[in-house]
Structures are given as C-alpha cells and as structure tokens.
C-alpha cells in the first residue's frame, strides 16, 4: 500500500514495518523472550482462563482407562452464588486470611528481632548461622510430619510428653484439633473464634514458622548489613535513642528487603496447602483445600474451579499491590 504521491517517500507497509522492528537488533531480543512468554501463556494464562471457563459450567470429568472426557453445561454464575452463600466458604476464607496475616505478622516482628540479634558479631557466628538455617531446607512434607509427631494428641507426642513430664498439663492436649482457645474466658474465646483463631491453626502456624523464619531473618540481616554504620554514629552524636535509631534508620532502610520477604512469603502462604493437607486432611478448611476437595474428592469440578478462580483473583490483587510498590521503590 505504497503512497501514490511521488513527492513523499513511500510509507512502508505495515508488514515491512513490523519486520524492520523485529529484525536485526530486536530479532535477538524477541528470540530470547519467546520461550518465557510461551511458558507464561501456556502454563499460567491459558489454564487460568480454563479455570474461569470450567467455573461457569457444572463441569464433570470422567476418566476411563487413562483417557478422560469433559462434560458440562453452561450455568453462568451459579457456582459462584453457591459458594458465596455457603457458610463453609466464608469459614475457609476467614481461616486463610488468619493464617496469612498472623504468619506475616510473626515473620516481620520475630524475623527483624532475630536479625537484630544476629547482627552483632560474636564468636562462632558461622556455626550458629549454619544451624539456624537448617529448618528452612527441610521439605514441607517432612516438616509437616515432624510437627505432626510433635503435636501428636497422645501422651507420647513430643510436646505432650515434655509438658506432662514437667507437670505443666494434667492430661495430653490434642494440639491439632480446631478447638477454641481460652475456653474458660468466654468473651475472649468467642472473639478469637470469630477471627478464625483456634488451637490447630495456631499450632500449624508455629510449625510453619519454624521452617520459614530463618529465611526471613537472614534476608533482613542481609539488609541490615547494607546500612552504613556512619548513619548510626551520626544519630548517636545527635543523641537519638535506640528506638529512634531503629525507627528512623533501620526500618526505612530495610524496607526493600522486607518487600522481597513479603512477596516470597505471600506466594507461599496463599499456596499453603501441603502442611495443612498433610496434618489435617480436609479437617481444617482453608480455600485451597476447599477447592481441592470440591474437585478431586466430590468431583464438582465446576464449584472447585470457581473456588480456585476466587483464590487466583485474590492472589493477583495482592500481587498487583506488591508489584506496584516494588516498582515504585525501584524508581527511587
């Protein structure tokens, strides 16, 4: 479609302009980028859209001899309405949010505390660091079964054994039972139940933190060690208290590291399936286990997909805020 007027140079066709853009310099770029984009589309975007599609139908899957067929009629938003009017769903949502928020809270406070503790040099630091890091390397399933043994409700469970031995408890406690806390103080017990706190989820958080706190602490420690010592000296000369120094120097400067930690951990916490499934089966409903149960235990692939899609959208909303914050930090 060349321009007929001779006075002007002919405008290259759309195709040619496209080829010019991808040839030479850019050809390499496109070539290098394609595999990652293919993976992103094929394994993330398309399955996510497929989840949406299945969630809008009463999908059923039948597998005969290794080959399956998918059936189901379009039902619109019915699966979502089913979920949103199901009290179980709200319990699961509450439990998921509780697990996530409490874990992040513990990690930010105790993680910074651990890092501050390790920040001052002392003899044998390398050994302590090596030892403290080990739990993070333990595979989640192994960690879950280990804490299953520790929190075992019989008197031979490790924690019960120790507490009985020291006469701190009179009878073995079933730690992994989702029973209310502080049963003797009704108002407190009710308040805690209302936000989704129970014995089992707190026990699981403890087991989960045993594995994940080390990484948080070491990332924060790395951030702490990047802060120039002159800042603290200057603050000390100005007469700033330890708290002011922490609040005005330490916290702002470890901000970027903290956001790394938050991203890594949110990623894992929304994914939290393994430790809960290994220890509780379907006994402690969080969203991920609910979706799994609907699809693979009840065969309700439509409702399962709807729940899975809700989790995905939640994760993407959180991801959006994180990523935006990261970029803002990067620009500064």
């Amino acid at each position: 479609m060349a321009n007929p007027e001779l006075s002007q140079p002919p405008r290259p066709s759309l195709m040619r302009r496209y080829f010019r853009r991808v040839s030479g310099e850019n050809a390499w770029f496109v070539l290098l980028l394609i595999p990652a984009v293919v993976i992103l589309l094929g394994v993330i975007v398309i399955p996510m859209l497929w989840t949406l599609k299945m969630s809008l139908a009463n999908t059923s899957v039948s597998v005969v001899g290794g080959r399956g067929s998918v059936g189901g009629q379009f039902v619109g938003w019915r699966n979502y309405i089913f979920l949103l009017t199901d009290p179980q769903f709200w319990v699961a949502l509450r439990e998921t949010l509780y697990f996530w928020i409490v874990s992040i809270g513990i990690e930010v406070t105790l993680g910074i505390g651990m890092a501050l503790l390790l920040n001052r040099p002392f003899r044998g630091f390398w050994l302590v660091r090596a030892v403290i890091f080990i739990p993070w390397a333990i595979p989640t399933v192994v960690n879950a079964t280990l804490w299953g043994m520790i929190f075992n409700g019989n008197n031979y469970g490790a924690l019960n054994d120790l507490l009985l031995r020291w006469h701190w408890i009179a009878a073995p406690v079933v730690w992994l039972n989702p029973s209310p806390l502080f049963a003797r103080i009704p108002w407190l017990s009710h308040a805690l139940s209302a936000i989704g706190s129970n014995l089992a989820i707190n026990a699981i958080i403890v087991g989960d933190e045993w594995k994940t706190l080390p990484l948080v602490a070491f990332l924060v420690l790395a951030g702490l060690q990047m802060i120039p010592q002159d800042f603290y000296e200057a603050a000390r000369i100005e007469g700033a208290s330890a708290w002011t120094q922490f609040n005005k120097i330490t916290l702002p400067l470890i901000g970027p590291v903290l956001s790394v930690v938050l991203i890594l951990r949110t990623m894992q916490l929304l994914r939290a399936f393994t430790i809960l499934f290994t220890l509780e089966g379907y006994g402690l409903p969080v969203l991920s286990i609910g979706a799994y149960q609907q699809a693979f235990s009840f065969g309700n692939f439509g409702i399962g997909s709807a729940e899975a899609f809700i989790i995905g959208v939640m994760a993407l909303v959180i991801a959006y805020f994180y990523v935006r914050k990261l970029y803002r930090e990067e620009m500064q």
Binding site: I44, G68, V70, I263, T266, L270, F273, A291, S305, I311
Partner: peptide, 21 residues
C-alpha cells in the same frame, strides 16, 4: 512476577482436566 504469586491450587484443576482430556 504476578504469575508467580498465583497459587498452584488455582491452576491444578485445569492442569488435571487438560492433561487427561
């Protein structure tokens, strides 16, 4: 980065369905 924040469980159902069908 956002794709990494997506929980496995929200993709596992289509993975299964697409793989077997």
């Amino acid at each position: 980065l956002a794709s990494n924040l997506l929980p496995t469980v929200s993709l596992i159902i289509p993975f299964y369905v697409l793989t077997v069908s």
